[in-house]
Design a protein around this nucleic acid. Structure first.
Length: 306
RNA sequence: GCCGAGAUAGCUCAGUGGUAGAGCGCGGCCCUGAAAAGGCCGGCGUGGGGGGUCCGAUUCCCUCUCUCGGCA
């Protein structure tokens, strides 16, 4: 029996995934599942460079603008929702086309998520308190005693991961390093095709800088002001542009500085994305240094699929 | 033309008679329930050109070139 097909389109921020995806989706009878930790949020349209409503009407986009910015969100929730959408699409004989740049979300779809516990507010609050009072060295030593294997993989300064590892152990009595071995990926049941879009660094950086300029021209300031009127979730707050503009609103620095910071942080983000994707040898890369239309790239991808 | 200041990492600059740092930028990497987050690592650079003093000069002296400021 022929395996069901799943397609991924990955790449750094600004590279032009969205337009290519829509074009490709039409050719292969696919619907798009966004793989982006920030575009899931409503009311963050300019900020996250979401595709327009008009384009969304042409091809159905899932997990895009699906939750309110006041809500917390995380990988586990994403994975569950995304996989359930996948099933629905298969039943409609459609191909799921995952598009986005959030490496972690992508990896939990393709390679699975090990069975763990959700975050526990109480345990976390306690650990955060200890972190503040006794420092990260203390927490790290504690982890070394409880789960030496996990500690070996985590840097002593990486408080976030130390806390998570401790949390899992304290809650379940099982070491996170044990749980991490239990992952189930997609490869067995599906035909997985993974594409990556990339270009020379300098070209990418120019695109990113220009994109930030365009955000301001489109009314970014108004959008962020509106967002800040409500209480944003910890996750939504992390979108590049929120922190940077807050500094400007509170008079810490000029608008030009806020823009500069947004551009820089976006460039750094793109670099981290590439580091994540580059080591995944399953990705087939398409370089788009020369000016080519999204449709042309989509055609290229379509040929590689059939 | 004269006077003064300067010429050191991609940028802004610090410092020293025994061949050099700091911030920013940039590059590389890690990553499993906050991931657009969080964390780690990385500086041999013809010290503007030439000459001199010295065991030794980026550091002192001379000269040339260039840049900036002031006076004409």
């Amino acid at each position: 029996m022929l395996k069901k097909k799943i397609v991924f389109l990955l790449g750094p921020t600004g590279i032009g995934k969205s337009a290519v995806a829509i074009s490709l989706a039409k050719k292969i009878n696919a619907e798009i599942i966004s793989c982006d930790s920030m575009q899931v949020y409503r009311k963050m349209n300019i900020l996250t460079s979401k595709v327009s409503g008009e384009q969304r009407r042409k091809i159905k986009h899932h997990l895009l603008s699906s939750i309110d910015p006041s809500q917390e969100y995380n990988v586990a929730q994403y994975r569950q929702e995304a996989l359930s959408i996948c099933d629905k699409l298969f039943r409609k004989l459609k191909i799921p086309l995952f598009v986005g740049g959030t490496g972690l979300y992508y990896s939990t779809i393709v390679d699975g998520l090990f069975p763990a516990v959700p975050q526990d507010k109480l345990i976390r609050a306690k650990l955060e308190k200890q972190l503040k009072q006794k420092g990260n060295k203390y927490l790290y030593r504690r982890l070394s005693k409880l789960d030496a294997d996990a500690a070996k993989k985590i840097h002593p300064n990486d408080a976030r991961r130390i806390i998570r590892a401790l949390e899992v152990y304290l809650k379940t009595g099982t070491r996170i390093s044990e749980l991490q071995k239990k992952r189930v990926g997609l490869d067995q049941q599906y035909e997985v095709n993974i594409f990556g879009l990339n270009s020379d660094r300098q070209i990418l950086y120019n695109i990113i800088n220009q994109r930030v300029d365009r955000m301001f021209a489109l009314g970014l300031i108004g959008e962020v002001k509106r967002l800040l009127k409500c209480k944003l979730s910890q996750t939504a707050q992390c979108a590049i542009g929120i922190r940077e503009l807050k500094g400007y609103f509170s008079g810490q620095y000029s608008l030009a500085e806020a823009k500069r910071l947004m551009q820089r942080n976006s460039r750094h983000y793109a670099k981290r994305q590439l580091t994540w994707f580059k080591k995944d040898k399953r990705i087939k890369w398409i370089n788009i240094n020369k000016k080519v239309s999204p449709a042309q790239i989509a055609t290229k991808l379509w040929k590689k699929l059939s």
